[in-house]
Each structure stands twice: as C-alpha cells, then as structure tokens.
C-alpha cells in the first residue's frame, strides 16, 4: 500500500482525493486522505458517538417513572436506539484507524467532549417529550445533511440514524400532544420544559458563522453541507408552527416573522453559557461523566468473563 510502489507522489494522491470530493463521490476507509481530513472526521464522529452514549442518561432517568407501560416501552426503545447510534458511529470512527476502547477512555478521561445539550437535567416528565421534539428535532436538522457527507462510513451510519430519529421526534411530539390536551398542570409542565430547552436546543447548532472559522474547510471537504446559522434558521422556521399546534409559547420576545426575508427573526442565544457548558461547567457535566465512568468500570468484570469464556472455548476445541 505504500505510495512509492505504485509510483504515486503525495501530490498525485491529493489530486485523486480532491477529484473524488469535487465530483461528489465518497471517500472510503482505505483511500488516501489528508491527515487533517482524517483527524477532523475522528473528532467529529467520535464526539458524535459520545453524544449518543451520554444522551442515554437524561432520558434514562425517566424510564422507571414513565406513567404507563406504553410510555415505558417507547422510552426503553428510544434509549436503546441511542446506544445503537453510538455503536454505529464508533464503528465508523474505527474505519479511520482509532480503537473504540481508546475512544471510550478519551471520553471518560474528559479528553474528548460530547454535545452540550446533555449537560442539562431532566427535571420533569415533560422533558422526555420536549427532548424528542426540540433536541431530536435539532439533531435531525444537523444530521440529515450528514447523510451526504463525503466520508462513506459516516454517511452510511447517518442514513440509519436518521431513519430512527424520526421515531424519536414523533414519539416526543405525541407525548406533548397528550399532555397539552390534559390538565392545566400538565400544560404548565410542557411550557416550563419548553422554556428550559429552547435556548440549549438553538445552541446545538454551534456558534454564529462569523465565529466558526473552520466551517469553510469542512464545507470544502464535503463533510459539512450547510453553515451553523443556516441550519439554526431552518430549525426555527420548522419549529414555530409545531409550537403553535401545541399551544406552547417559545420563550423569545424577538421571535417574529420577517416578511422580507421569508424567515422568522429570533434573538441570539447566550454563547457564554454555551462555551461554559460544553467545556465542563454545565449543571450536569460532572454527574454525566461520573456515571459513564462508573458504568465502564463496573462492567469490567463482564467484559473479562466473556473474554475468559471465549479463550476457554477456543482452547477446548483446539
């Protein structure tokens, strides 16, 4: 596989890579790729995987307290999907030459991050619905364009994930519909939860385009297809009518239809809060990481036992 053998210089290989991207074809695992492209993808895919895995915790918090067997079954299936999404993504990351176990270590050692949204607590059962509606809705806006990402294994993982996210969003919205058609107290719970999750959901798209100097590079590489602000706008435009159907007020006085632009105007999220939460000072960062670390450490004996059994079976049959 060395390049010299086939008489190709690094410049030739770069040419092939650029050509593949320019013609909107996919880069596959064993293709030559620039080191910076590979590293960008590892960061993005690994931390996306971590987000799915950590994302099980806020909702997992409500499994035992779900109000009916129907709701409990749905929530269990959803949380299991999040684990599945994490696994698809770790599998994609591994095609770039990193070891899955090392990625887990980097997460629990706080050397890689995950989405800031999972550092907010789930204080009421309405949060389960609002997370499906707003948080998964925002994730879908981000993830649908990633189905056309230039890196084949990531794009394929995203196609599977997006199919399943649709269930996540719809179950959340249906839950909220049931609540807003219930008692005044239930309607108040939905409003209170929306108030807490609205701004963190907008922050999921990342800082404004002017503060995202690397966006252009990611777009040139075909990893990213739309800017942060474009996706955020799309999300707001999609969500306003959904909020109206629920009879819920989105907590932004600056949220108004702009006839000229053909879009909703809205206020700027608090980026200081975003940076603080993603880098460790959110309400639940310590708790989320400690829980993940504990699960990993307390599961060690299971991994070792399975390994010992496999070794014994192999030796027995040899």
């Amino acid at each position: 596989m060395t390049t010299a053998e086939h008489g190709l210089t690094e410049e030739d290989l770069h040419g092939v890579f650029d050509e593949t991207i320019a013609t909107d074809q996919r880069i596959e695992p064993r293709d030559w790729m620039p080191e910076a492209y590979r590293k960008t993808l590892i960061r993005q895919i690994a931390q996306h995987a971590h987000s799915e895995i950590i994302g099980m915790q806020p909702e997992g918090n409500w499994i035992l307290r779900a109000p009916s067997l129907r709701r409990k079954s749905i929530l269990l299936a959803k949380v299991q999907d999040e684990a599945g999404h994490g696994m698809y993504l770790y599998a994609a990351a591994e095609t770039l030459g990193v070891d899955r176990e090392e990625l887990t270590e980097k997460l629990i050692d706080n050397k890689q991050k995950y989405s800031s949204i999972f550092n907010y607590p789930t204080l009421s059962y309405a949060d389960v619905g609002v997370i499906g509606w707003l948080v998964d809705g925002a994730a879908i806006c981000n993830q649908v364009p990633l189905c056309r990402c230039s890196y084949g294994p990531y794009a394929r993982a995203m196609i599977r994930i997006c199919k399943e996210e649709s269930f996540h969003q719809r179950q959340g919205y249906e839950l909220l519909l049931a609540m807003v058609n219930g008692t005044d107290e239930q309607r108040a719970m939905v409003q209170e939860s929306t108030n807490r999750f609205w701004w963190p959901s907008l922050m999921m798209f990342g800082p404004p385009d002017g503060d995202s100097p690397n966006t252009q590079q990611s777009m040139d590489w075909g990893i990213k297809r739309h800017t942060n602000d474009e996706l955020r706008q799309r999300f707001v435009d999609m969500t306003v009518p959904q909020a109206e159907a629920l009879g819920v007020t989105l907590p932004d006085e600056g949220l108004v239809w702009n006839e000229t632009r053909g879009h909703y105007d809205f206020s700027e999220p608090d980026w200081t809060e975003f940076k603080a939460v993603i880098s460790g000072s959110g309400p639940c960062n310590a708790q989320r990481l400690a829980h993940r670390r504990r699960a990993h450490e307390e599961g060690a004996w299971v991994r070792e036992a399975a390994q010992a059994y496999a070794t014994k079976q192999r030796e027995g049959s040899a």
Binding site: R43, Q44, Y114, I117, N142, K224
Partner: peptide, 26 residues
Amino acid sequence: IPSSDEGEYTAEGGHGAVPTQGVETG
C-alpha cells in the same frame, strides 16, 4: 475540568456542536 480555551466550537458533532480543535484524536 479544562477551561474554555478549546478554540472553535462547530456544529459538526451531528447531535449538537462539539469542539473541533484542542481535542485528542487517539
């Protein structure tokens, strides 16, 4: 807990923005 000096935060984590600089890759 590291300070907030990781540089850029983009939306490239898929399920929400994650830092794309100052993060180890393995």
